[in-house]
């Protein structure tokens, strides 16, 4: 319970070394939110059934609700808070903002991180590949379509293309 003695680990969080002490039964989700103050990582079930708590662990998208904090010693965690660099939004953040891919915004950090991992592995994903990559994340607001469009637009920009949203996605047919 709360009086169990804490463990301390060292890890990298968003590219910076961090040390954190916490009760050993805590999940990475709880450690991030409660012990590191990084509340950008959300949760929707804590059972691995929605994808909302996704973070990148050594570059791989994982469910932070099912990763033990103690298992993260020496590993690199990336959360939504680490995506913008030097006050500049990540291209995915730009396109999610511009296209309305974030409505309530609750599932957004997870989608952004999964999309980032996807684009790192596959800079030119098809719509179908995007759907499959995002199939572990539930969103109740958007119907996913604006998310696909945002990923595609960011992918194009990250490839160095000059790309703009389509007229239909902003104004309809």
């Amino acid at each position: 319970m709360s009086n169990e003695s804490k463990v301390k680990i060292a890890l990298s969080v968003n590219g910076e070394p961090a040390e954190v002490a916490f009760a050993p039964h805590k999940t990475l989700l709880e450690v991030l939110r409660e012990d590191l103050g990084l509340t950008g990582t959300k949760h929707g079930c804590e059972l691995g059934e929605c994808g909302t708590c996704t973070v990148l662990l050594d570059g791989t998208a994982v469910l932070s609700c099912l990763v033990l904090g103690v298992a993260c010693e020496g590993r690199a965690v990336r959360t939504v808070e680490g995506m913008a660099q030097n006050g500049q939004l990540h291209p995915l953040q730009e396109t999610f903002a511009d296209l309305g891919a974030a409505q309530c915004g609750y599932c957004t950090p997870a989608f952004l991180l999964v999309a980032e991992a996807l684009l790192a592995a596959n800079p030119h994903p098809t719509r179908d590949e995007i759907k499959h990559a995002l199939a572990g994340n539930l969103c109740r607001c958007t119907g996913y379509i604006k998310i696909y469009e945002a990923v595609e637009l960011a992918a194009a920009r990250m490839r160095g293309e000059v790309a703009q949203p389509t007229r239909e996605s902003l104004y309809g047919r």
């Binding site: 319970m1 009760a23 050993p24 039964h25 805590k26 949760h43 079930c45 804590e46 033990l68 103690v70």
Partner: peptide, 9 residues
Amino acid sequence: MLRLPTFRY
């Protein structure tokens, strides 16, 4: 939040 019980890891 649904949490884990305590255990040794």
